[in-house]
């Protein structure tokens, strides 16, 4: 998907490829923080610290998020393959 065709990649392309990989991971991180905070943390802020229950919820939410992320990635590839690709764009 991110191939450079037949020729050797230029310096700029090599740097951009690494940068892009890190960006994908960073976005996944941001997304997980947003969703799991929303799912687990009480928003009244009567306390400034995480309760035991909130902390455990965050840990489990993180694990479920990774599992769901992989699952959705697989589903997407399967369905794209079936529909002949494109996701309608």
């Amino acid at each position: 998907m991110f191939g450079f065709g037949a020729r050797a990649p230029t310096s700029a392309e090599k740097v951009a490829a690494v940068e892009n990989e890190l960006k994908v991971v960073a976005e996944m991180h941001t997304r997980m923080v947003k969703i799991c905070s929303l799912k687990c943390v009480d928003k009244t802020y009567r306390e400034g610290e995480l309760s035991k229950g909130e902390a455990v919820c965050l840990d489990r939410c993180a694990a479920k998020f990774f599992e769901a992320h992989a699952k959705i990635s697989d589903h997407l590839q399967q369905q794209s393959a079936q529909q002949g690709g494109g996701f309608g764009m």
Binding site: V33, S37, Y45, E49, A55, L58, D59, A63, F66
Partner: peptide, 28 residues
């Protein structure tokens, strides 16, 4: 007071989730 607690709690949340993320990402 609410804002102060919100910032503190959000930072702990961020730190905790970042640790989990690093572990899970490494495992993956």
């Amino acid at each position: 007071g609410c804002i102060q607690r919100c910032v503190a709690k959000s930072m702990t949340t961020q730190t905790r989730l970042s640790e989990r993320f690093a572990e899970l990402n490494q495992a993956m």
